[in-house]
Simulated scan of single mutants.
Amino acid sequence: MTTWRKSSYSDETGGACIELARLSPGVGVRDSKAPWAGHLELPRQSFAALLDYLRRERPSN
């Protein structure tokens, strides 16, 4: 059974958030508001690169 974890940035109304799961051999990403719509699976290295990019390109408040 796959365990999906919701983003810690999510609020009680659902907000715009994602869920992540450890999949073999990658990482699953899906919309928390529509989990039935499927998921995107990324290789671990690609997921790490995506996170690095998002951290660098995050707009400052």
Results as ranks from 00 to 15, higher is better:
G28H: 07
G28N: 11
G28E: 07
G28F: 01
G28C: 03
G28S: 06
V29F: 05
V29A: 05
V29K: 15
R30K: 13
R30A: 02
R30T: 06
D31A: 06
S32P: 02
S32N: 15
S32C: 03
K33L: 08
K33W: 07
A34L: 15
A34G: 10
A34Q: 14
A34C: 08
A34N: 11
P35R: 09
P35T: 10
P35M: 07
W36G: 10
W36L: 12
A37S: 15
A37W: 03
A37K: 10
G38F: 01
G38V: 02
H39R: 13
H39C: 01
H39N: 07
H39W: 03
H39F: 03
H39D: 04
H39Q: 07
H39G: 02
H39A: 04
L40D: 06
L40C: 11
L40N: 12
E41L: 03
E41V: 08
E41A: 10
L42M: 13
L42R: 08
L42N: 09
L42T: 04
L42Q: 09
L42E: 03
L42P: 02
L42G: 08
P43W: 05
P43A: 13
P43M: 07
P43K: 09
P43D: 11
P43H: 14
R44S: 08
R44Y: 05
R44A: 11
R44M: 09
R44V: 05
R44C: 14
Q45T: 06
Q45V: 08
Q45E: 14
S46F: 02
S46K: 05
S46D: 14
S46C: 11
S46H: 06
S46G: 11
F47N: 00
F47P: 00
A48C: 01
A48H: 02
A48K: 02
A48R: 01
A49D: 09
L50E: 12
L50H: 15
L50K: 11
L50V: 04
L51I: 06
L51M: 13
L51T: 06
L51R: 13
L51C: 13
D52P: 00
D52T: 02
D52R: 02
Y53T: 07
Y53C: 04
Y53F: 09
Y53R: 04
Y53K: 04
Y53D: 09
Y53M: 05
L54G: 09
R55G: 14
R55D: 15
R56G: 12
R56I: 04
R56S: 15
R56N: 14
R56D: 10
R56A: 14
E57I: 01
E57N: 13
E57K: 07
E57Y: 07
R58T: 10
R58I: 03
